[in-house]
Nucleic acid binder design. Sequence first.
DNA 1: TTGAAAGCGCTAACAA
DNA 2: TTGTTAGCGCTTTCAA
Lengths: 343, 343
Amino acid sequence: MTATIYDVAKRAGVGIGTVSRALNESTQIKPDTKARVLRAIHDLKYQPHALAQGLARKKTHMIAIIVPVFTGYFYLELLKGIQKEAAKNNYDLLLYSVDEGDRTEAFLKRTLSESRVDGVLLVSLKMSDKYAEQFQQSRFPIVLVDSLHSDLDSLTVENREGAYLATSHLISLGHKKIGMVDAQLKSAPAQVRLDGYKKALVDHGLPFNDAYLVITHDLTEKDGFNREAGYESMQQLIAMGEDRPTAVFIASDIQAAGAIQAIHESRLRIPEDVSIVGFDDIEMAEYLSLSTMHQPLFEMGQTAIQRLIDRMNDSELPVIRQRFHTKLVIRKSCGSQVPGMNL
Amino acid sequence: MTATIYDVAKRAGVGIGTVSRALNESTQIKPDTKARVLRAIHDLKYQPHALAQGLARKKTHMIAIIVPVFTGYFYLELLKGIQKEAAKNNYDLLLYSVDEGDRTEAFLKRTLSESRVDGVLLVSLKMSDKYAEQFQQSRFPIVLVDSLHSDLDSLTVENREGAYLATSHLISLGHKKIGMVDAQLKSAPAQVRLDGYKKALVDHGLPFNDAYLVITHDLTEKDGFNREAGYESMQQLIAMGEDRPTAVFIASDIQAAGAIQAIHESRLRIPEDVSIVGFDDIEMAEYLSLSTMHQPLFEMGQTAIQRLIDRMNDSELPVIRQRFHTKLVIRKSCGSQVPGMNL
DNA sequence: TTGAAAGCGCTAACAA
DNA sequence: TTGTTAGCGCTTTCAA
């Protein structure tokens, strides 16, 4: 069928070892034999068999990436960064995506014992202590992205800080009655964004008002990061009438989209009647003129691969925990409460 | 390190052949030896080495998918279908994504000769005659998705028909002056959607008016499927004043988003002053209440994998060309021109 | 029903 | 500088 190293060796009149040397940049080979081999390789359109190579070298040049079934911008952007950096370093990506029924552990197990890949990126999924220990002990290279475990390398976005910044932005515009729309607290980012919101209030001497915090009901078994959730939550806030907050920090842009719809339907204006800050900076945010917190996802993806490669080269590296910072993107969804400072 | 088949054989007191038989559902093995082997496998937490297995079997159980660097909903949804079906059939996905500098052929070449995967899905990328022939001759399983070549299996969405349907919808609402906003014609879908638009006009006895067709200028080197393009194109149409079309078919939802913005800024109303139909049914479309053409992407992804698997099992299957149909999703961006039929 | 042994296509250690 | 050979971990004949 396709040519093997033996065919090349025969055609070039050398041994297979020499062919291998010509292929692998060995210095231990005379230039003109190398040239002869290379020509034979070219003539035969020979390309090494990846599996055979992997078996012999004990390296596959593949990286597994375990992600929740991708939904939306977050993973797209992250994946782009991962993909770009992997390609640059000549690694292929094996995509394990986890849907219902959470097969994370099954993938981790395969990864660990099947020798199909040289390293793993675990994205947005929980790393159990049990497997963390196994990875740790086996020195199998792994990097967590948007997930956390004290024994393993991890890269995360500073959600708490982002929420803090978002809320502070509202405060700096003079708002005193600042609400928050959050997703289910079982979701880690939802939890942490709430913390940041609270801390910003406290740090600025504002009271935390329970009535201003709306957490999406558990409609369906989703986490609440969706438009309907935002829509309903905002309706609750609006129903407070004159007591309603003048500004709201919303835990995600997609919820903000729903919230905006609710606001418009109530004939309220943004930002005159209510100011809004979202989180994520999804594509739609620009369209909505929504001020929001931007996450450096592409960059995080690139860094994740770099780190993984570093670790594949040296398994004794100390464990790191790298935090990425969000950035406030100001558009037109926030108005000032300071008299005369308004538009 | 990790246990091999020899370790298992030794522990179970059998030869490695027997272990292999126990593993591979062979009938040629006595139940109790099989049980003994299985227990040894369990005790040692043995898992076959994927590469070694692949090398011996000449099958990797991996499928390569070559896609343009994913941007937006189209690929997300398609990938979901692909991923789900692949997982269901126990195939792993190797992701080759093509960015600037079009490395499509390099990937095809590797695929063909590296033996890393059992089959390929080529998505939205051009298959050259040269490689089509190579795949064809080598009987290497490949399926084209959203791409076309007469010698190979291909799955496509009926863009022309979709555009025809979209335009016809506008016509059925009584519109006579129907415009179109399109992307660069070098893009195949843009070209084909224009054809469908024209045909619908002609079939319904309406004239094709050059002034009503706006094709995005070549800002940057993009193809024009973006919001800014839609925004500017719609501005051109609006600038026609009273002569402007009463309805516009827009080649993509993302352009429609820009167009809608332009319309609002001109203080025109949708659908009272101008009706809009988009294409794609991206997530934002629902938010925008945009009537649009839905593409069955998830399903197409699933089917692609099924077909690829069929072909891997029987390389002599006749070449097929399967067309998927779009579906009109009616929301609120289209009004009627027929007196009394309006809202 | 089973074990032994010959590949699968390559790398790398060892000799020459 | 080169050829030979022993693995890498598995599947699959071939005998027994």
